[in-house]
Design a protein around this nucleic acid. Sequence first.
RNA 1: GCCUAGGUGGUGGAACUGGUAGACACGCAGGACUUAAAAUCCUGUUCGCCUUAAAGCGAGUGCGGGUUCGAUUCCCGCCCUAGGUACCA
Length: 1084
Amino acid sequence: MVFLWPNFSRTMDYQFKDIEAKWQQFWSKNQTYRVENNTSKPKYYVLDMFPYPSGAGLHVGHPLGYIASDIFSRYKRLKGFNVLHPMGYDSFGLPAEQYAIQTGQHPAITTETNINRYREQLDNLGFSFDWSREVRTSDPAYYKWTQWIFMQLFNSWYNLETDKAEPISTLIRKFETGGSKYVKAACDDDRSTFTADEWKQKSEEEQQKEFLKYRLTYLRESTVNWCPALGTVLANDEVKEGFSERGGHPVEQKKMMQWSMRITAYADRLLQGLENIDWPEPLKEMQRHWIGKSVGAIVKFSLTPTLSEGEGEQKLSYKTANPILWEVLKANSKHNRKEQTEAEGLLWQYLRDSQLGYKIRRQHAIDGYIADFVCLKKGLVIEVDGEYHLDNEENDALRTEVLNKYGFEVIRFTNEEVAENTISVAQKIKDKLEHIEGLKGGVPSPSERARVRLEVFTTRVDTLFGVSFLVIAPEHELVPSLTTPEQEETITNYILQTKKKSELDRMADTKKTVSGAFTGSYAKHPITGTNIPIWIADYVLAGYGTGAVMAVPSGDQRDWLFAKHFNLPIIPILDAQKDIDQQADPTKEGKYIHSDLINGLTYKEATRVLIAKLEELGVGKAKMNYRLRDAIFGRQRYWGEPVPVYFKNGLPYLIDEKELPLLLPEVDKYLPTENGEPPLGRAENWKYHDQYEYELSTMPGWAGSSWYWYRYMDAQNNQAFADKKAISYWKDVDLYIGGSEHATGHLLYSRFWNKFLKDLGYVGEEEPFKKLISQGMIQGRSNFVYRLIDDEGKSTNTFVSSGLKHQHKTIALHVDVNMVENDVLDLNQFKSFRAEFANAEFILEAGKYMCGVEVEKMSKSKFNVVNPDDITARYGADTLRLYEMFLGPLEQSKPWNTNGIEGVFKFLRKFWKLFHDDTFNFNISDEEPTKAEYKALHKIIRKAEEDIERFSFNTSVSSFMICVNELTDLKCNKRKILQDLVIVLSSYAPHITEELWTLLGNQAGTLSYANYPKFNEVYLIENEFAYPVSVNGKMKMNLMMSLNLNAPEVEQLVLANDDVLKYLDGKSPKKVIFVKGKIVNLVL
RNA sequence: GCCUAGGUGGUGGAACUGGUAGACACGCAGGACUUAAAAUCCUGUUCGCCUUAAAGCGAGUGCGGGUUCGAUUCCCGCCCUAGGUACCA
């Protein structure tokens, strides 16, 4: 291929426009950066976080990381690596859908338009991406594999014994051979217990239901931000203070059945993995905190009977409801009986009047819940659930747990089961009733209930003897049973008060006010047996740990405040605790006091001894606790991956793998249906095999990005998400550059999926991203003009320069930064900016209008957006690339300021001039370079190498400038120097160097694969050095001396020097410090 | 509150392992070239004092201490800024 370009560069100054266009075309046509998977070269994988293609296009902040990664990739290529440096688009997402709702345009179309614009902008910057590997998450050929991974997750469970994910088939084998007993899994809390025989007798549906409790992706009821006015679910960041960000409509918390990912199974591995990856410490800290592992202990406090004698052993017969809630429950129960569902009505006909031989009650209150049906004698609760448990206020799992605690067993049926086969359901109930052992003596008495133990989680089990009270969350399930009649009113009031408070909480300041209420009950200390009062308080959260804490006022500030406020004892436990009458002292130093069997021990010893003791007594054990929750994996949106699932009898099943991808169906509108179903509910005739309902929610934004780095390895493969050979060659990402805003989202989910894929043997590495650099944000730098206000407070058409504004009454207006240079306003541009400014008058300072400055987020509304296209048009891509790096350290956030760009542009012109004579004729000499010239070159060879390796791009740009300044001073135009300099600079400024590379007589396109010049120390060795001579550490003068001299020789020379003697003031120094090659210091 | 990063001229920043603080660049000031402007080149530019000048003196890396012959760098206490996070037991 021959390029016919005018030979302009031989007769003209640096023409960046033509040069850059020429090489961008050349690289594209010749596929210069196409990467092969089969080479003998070592691999290096450099990845950027791929962008979401928004309608606004790129601003100068976006390419910062791409430039850095491109420099690094080009550098590694010169160093002989086979570098994978791909780019793609995270193209599913909300903005496109929002736009579609507003305009009716299909999101695929607007996404395509945006991608094309992004591509054009990226192409302008001279990146060495291999575009043949581009991925788009919204492309069916891509999301086919996202769906496929979802299916693998659905078909897997987490075996705690092998500590990895395994196919469900291994779980089945375990159930069939040993029942549920020996299965150790990360699973739902409400899993059933059964023997192998019982398992085999279970129906297919019962088995499926049980699997769902183990699968790594499963259905769970979760709370979402539901906005009735918009008819949609909102993300957390779309909700501002309880209202939707768009439109300001009220948002409510609603429970919905949602797909979830069992990321908690991997909590510990996600934590451990952080030890072995080279990520910024703050980012790792964020993930650690997000996972929130606390190593502690569960301690069980038994409860002492709370009711007065006589009452104590009385059976409650059928009065099983919680007395506090009775009025409410009674009303609910009545309402429910009237509004019973069809299925409940059907079933009741078979259960009523002891037809089964047992007395069954319906809508019967137990504690704080209403059971659909209950047989009190046998202690069996029968629940009929809607498919999505729509009626459900409480969490089913919690409910079952509570009922189990009181000795009830719970069996559940779905509406469909009952409706389709009422008789067999009734028969199952009868069987159960006949086989169940039943409650001993019926319903538990208060004292029996009191035998329930209160579990607390603590990270400081060593403080056990400093416990002076227990605090449980107001929502804790045992609150009703623990409340004595005398305290009923107080407790009820407090619960009401907390409920109100949580609503107002957001408005209120964060100042801590102490509040709580005494339940009237006591617990026994597990070791000493003393009575400990039980309180409720809202500083204890129901959702963390066990929802109950043992309060140690001497060691915990919140407990301390509580104790002071309610006049509870504060027990010192360590001899090192100080001032505990002033505040809590959480120290672990010193020896224990007042602490029974651990008196005199240290923290470490005490913890070990106590846990052993608790375990021996069966009242506690060591326990790990995590803050991490399972991740919701569903959005009630259109523009996302469809979930490859259909429902049969209310249970989810996967579609056949051969049927992938499950394509996103066409819909008439991108809004929810009238019944509040997600937009996919609008799709016509969209049924699995024309009969079963598909899942209507789509996958969240992070689905497609949780594995995309593997797709780049083998982007066109339609047999697998990537070929095994490609994966074993590229392995993992060596360098990942992106924004730290993805710290706990994308970066955690990606690690999770990677570990899962590794467990199943699809990939080889435990961690996907070996090294990660988080780039700083580029902020906007806004400019302001100051408009005079007249006496009546009205705006005038006169504007005053920033330096004089304090002499007048003014208001500040944002002014477009593109009509401001070095904070000086271009008055003509300003006048033509808006009609109202056409006749504007100005009060100038020193003949100029100076604008005010503020650093803000870069956004259109603040008129501070700088488009990279404008910069490249004016200065070229090479200048922009260098300038973005020159701005400062990559990891630091900084405002964009175009002010310094001239300096970088001048540098490139100076560099160009080295190769040309005064009339811009290409002019290079083959003479042997001088020592000084070699020195300048080898300094930059080493410096650029060191700086790139530590990602200090700003300092290397400075060093390039120094080098070119030196060579200019030396009037160097020697090939031996300049050709190597071209290679070293090429990763930063690829266009100008390609041009000069060919002018030097090299083959076009070969620069990218040249060899990085070898550094030779010989050129930098000096035999003399201008030693700084300081007196008492203050630098006074430099003294040229040979580097071969040793300490006594130097001392002699220095003390004989006339200039030095001036500083000595006639004294002789007490001591002379000499560091070879560094410094001489005279101590007087 | 806690975690993390940071605080250096008018500005962006440099000084990598305790050894010449302010490299490089912008801006500004003065000058050369030009009819003029742009571009380019040269000189100066931390602050204060002193000086016709050359030179010199003093202070100085958020504040206060400490270690050291020597501290932007290490230690202790405090203040401020940015990002993250929270009644997490």
